[in-house]
């Protein structure tokens, strides 16, 4: 479980995040959404300790994490996927995935190798592709390897930054469906960043809408649509409502 309490981040006088509370529980999927510059990616990085908050606390399993070495250990319980995967080009997919186990003992690594095979099925990656280099894989395949890498150490929480952002629209719909199935079957706490309200509505149990570093409203898509707290929210939702409906209808059909 990952929890943020009153988190804020200040860069030279300017607050890019302010007073954010967030709680990622097992089995729940949270979408961070907002216009660009709203602080959603910064928030995700704070949850991973890549950015140190200026105020507030970050708790992993109920314990506050402070400092680089504490975070290095805590991060092993958190999986992280970024846009286009962030795979290391000089390593095979297998080595990329196993690198997260670099610190682990031999038995843990053996366990992870077994899990890797299971996970390839789960993320629908042909196991033969594991011996390829990232440059020899398609964008979708790279994304699956990135998921593998995030999951191989069996983290409790999964964080994703625009996980499908680099994909073409035609494969994107398919990938969204797969991702939803994956989230459901894993039952982990999931937080992901997207700029696409349809994607957020489709994948997430809770949508957290940010503007200028502050949480404006949170809830399901239906709540945001039926009772927006202000003009910004109703405009933000209104602008994308057709696409959301199309995606949700498609999912039902």
């Amino acid at each position: 479980m990952l929890e943020l309490l009153g988190v804020g981040k200040q860069y030279d006088e300017r607050w890019v995040l302010r007073g954010v509370d967030l709680r990622a529980d097992a089995g729940r999927v949270i979408a961070l959404i907002g216009p660009s510059g709203s602080g959603k990616s910064t928030l995700l990085r704070v949850m991973l300790g890549l950015i140190e908050p200026s105020e507030g606390r970050v708790l992993v399993d109920g314990e506050e994490v402070v400092g680089a070495s504490a975070w290095r250990v805590a991060r092993r319980r958190v999986g992280y996927v970024i846009q286009d995967g962030g795979l290391f080009p000089h390593m095979t997919a297998r080595r990329n995935a196993m690198l997260a186990l670099d610190h682990a003992g031999r038995s843990d690594r053996r366990e992870a190798l077994v899990r890797l095979t299971e996970l390839t099925g789960l993320v629908r990656l042909d196991a033969a592709l594991l011996d390829r280099f990232p440059s020899e894989l398609s964008g979708g395949q790279r994304q699956r390897v990135a998921l593998l890498r995030a999951l191989v150490s069996n983290p409790e929480t999964l964080l994703l930054d625009e996980p499908l952002g680099a994909l073409d629209p035609e494969v994107r719909a398919e990938a969204q469906r797969e991702l939803r199935d994956l989230f459901r079957s894993l039952g982990k706490a999931v937080v992901f960043v997207t700029h696409d309200l349809a994607e957020a509505a489709y994948l997430a149990d809770e949508i957290v809408l940010l503007r200028d570093g502050v949480v404006v409203q949170r809830g399901s898509f239906a709540e945001l649509r039926s009772s927006p707290v202000d003009d910004f929210v109703s405009r933000f939702v209104g602008a994308q409502v057709d696409r959301v409906r199309a995606l949700l209808d498609g999912a039902v059909a």
């Binding site: 991973l48 250990v73 991060r75 970024i82 962030g86 997260a100």
Partner: peptide
């Protein structure tokens, strides 16, 4: 992003 990935992996 690669540096970040390396950090994120721990």
């Amino acid at each position: 992003p690669l540096i970040e990935s390396a950090r994120a992996i721990g």
